[in-house]
Design a protein around this nucleic acid. Structure first.
Lengths: 347, 347
DNA sequence: TAAAGCCACTTTACCGGTATAGGTTTCGAT
DNA sequence: ATCGAAACCTATACCGGTAAAGTGGCTTTA
């Protein structure tokens, strides 16, 4: 593995010149440049990154932590992050929290050791070590960006959709179809986005909604938890005619529960999801859902973080990206009997 | 951000002592150790990783490249990798190839620059820069491990299942159920694992198989390609009674094609997948498939790579992990008419 | 009693780049 | 011919750790 000295010797120049040929070629004469590049090629030289990082005090890496890699919601986000980071000359360090607190502090330390220049955090709550770092930087920006969720009290930037409006849009869709008894399968209570979706979904002030009943089941964003919750809902004396799940995986669980009870979707039961993961359109029936621009969320977090790192952004910024209701085959007006029953019971 | 000098000064010792307290505490007296640790705590000191890496010529990072992050097949693999790497003191650098050659060489260079100590490669073909590195190291090991696939001619280690046997097991299952006309939806021809599965699936020498007809459709592991392929198969004059897709996502596409033609699965058409991704059991009907131990594949690649890095392994090793046929609801004996037709036509 | 060994630490060279200051050459203007 | 400034290059300090050699005082050994 050759170093810069060997290249310099071979090209007959100083190491500084070699360095400059590779980082700012325009300030070196064409002739010298040619000689150096030739030597670089012959020796297959590539600058050692540790040395570079030590001298420049930048690592060229962004740390990204994800609560659960297995969730397909994060795949396009990660792709957006990885692609943008690479095109801006950064590499991505991946941390999978697996919902484990002890792993979180491990990754918090990596920021302190400067193994990464910044952190893109997906999850509910910053690990303690990072929160301290953020608090220390306040009111200026620490190199930390929240994706999707964000802690209201904390001085951090974030990129997300309007979850209140998203939740409201899902329910508005069901309401417009005629549903008046709606089951809701929420995420865990410590998830800010789940809280917001619930807020929007059940907002009694929402214009045009009257005579709606909600039955809220707490779940945890997993297929299994939603299956159990929906199974319970369908076993009620007066089951809901529609169900809004706070993510698409839980909608899969809801579909399974419906199959299990020989209910047809959407004839007997309408189902709405959230996220529009890649598989939503391939479910049976294709899933109506609130789409999040996942790839753009990923891209947005990187851009925001790079703005902070370069000093272009000083004060924490919040970016809200648009969501979109995608109507597919899993929602329809409630069956006549159901709406009659509903009518009779409220009369 | 304090450095080791400030800690040394505060503790009244030399920097070397501070360094040793943190890396080999046992060779320092308890009293000195206490003083140093106290100073470390007060200053919130964390060793700069670039400096450490420069001196030790190790980066503590493993580069992992994935052809497509969106494929849920890779999620458990990545989780296994990340978890094992972290527990062994390594961090994971993520590269998403997105089937793009130009990105591949970018990541090849990272090895040369020593931004990572080793590479875990998922995909068909090593990028040129890495292949050169491997060739240069031959017949010893380069710090490169193939996951799932592997290039036969190349001197690299790999971790995978026996794809020939897996393909054979899938077809044996269908054969045992009575299917004699089997559609096969393969991956792209440049994928070694797809080639192997095809070999096993259509092996005419396989004991006990007689009078089986195969119709092979080339696809590319995507839902859409499989949908088109299966749609074509089902439109044939004598369509197959069972279909073996070389991954589970393609089985999803096959299911969709069956729904589209109002066929019941498994009554009218049996479907077998490969991989046993997390969603396989949640399809409608639950998918019969060949399970790969994905998490263990991930763990295995890390262990193998660390063995190479530590010098414990000198010669390239190949690890074959067990696969398993998981029978769920998507396979059943062919309908009577179909088998009669089959019988009549072969008589 | 000198030599050798050991302990617990300090000193220092070094990893491989880049930033910076300073030196040399070139060339047009005076 | 002399000067000045730009263009281009070199020498070197420095980034922050760690490995290895060195130190001083003590104990053990021949």
């Amino acid at each position: 593995m050759p170093n810069i000295y060997e290249v310099a010797k071979r090209a007959g120049v100083s190491t500084a010149t070699v360095s400059r040929v590779l980082s700012r070629p325009d300030v070196v004469s064409p002739e010298t440049r040619r000689k150096v590049l030739h030597a670089v090629k012959i020796l297959a030289y590539a600058p050692n990154s540790a040395a570079k990082h030590l001298r420049t005090l930048r690592s060229g890496k962004l740390l990204v932590t994800i609560p659960d890699l297995g969730n397909p919601f994060f795949s396009p986000i990660l792709q957006g992050i990885e692609e943008t980071a690479q095109s801006e000359g950064y590499a991505v360090l991946l941390g999978d929290m697996q919902h484990d607190k002890s792993r979180e502090d491990h990754y918090g330390l990596m920021l302190q050791r400067r193994e990464a220049d910044g952190l893109i955090f997906f999850g509910n709550k910053l690990p303690r070590s990072v929160a301290e770092l953020v608090a220390a930087a306040a009111p200026k920006c620490a190199p930390v960006v929240y994706g999707c969720d964000f802690e209201p009290g904390l001085c951090t930037s974030s990129v997300h959709v309007d979850n209140v409006a998203g939740g409201a849009d899902a329910v508005d869709h069901l309401y417009a179809l005629g549903h008046r008894r709606i089951g809701i399968v929420s995420g865990p209570p410590d998830s800010p986005s789940s809280r917001d979706r619930l807020l929007g979904a059940t907002d009694p002030e929402r214009a045009g909604r009257a005579n709606v009943e909600f039955v809220v089941m707490k779940a945890d964003f997993s297929i299994e938890s939603a299956y159990a919750a929906v199974n319970h809902l369908l076993g009620l004396r007066r089951p809901p005619t529609a169900i809004f799940c706070f993510n698409d995986e839980m909608a899969m669980g809801a579909l399974e529960a419906a199959w299990g009870r020989r209910l047809r979707v959407p004839e007997d039961l309408s189902i709405v999801g959230f996220d529009d993961i890649r598989f939503a359109r391939h479910m049976n029936p294709p899933l109506t859902t609130i789409a999040q621009p996942m790839r753009e969320i990923g891209i947005g977090t990187v851009r925001l973080l790079l703005d902070i790192l370069s000093g272009r952004t000083i004060v924490p910024a919040t970016v809200t990206l648009p969501h979109l209701l995608i109507v597919r085959g899993s929602t329809a007006p409630p069956a006549v009997e159901a709406s009659l029953m509903q009518h009779a019971s409220t009369a």
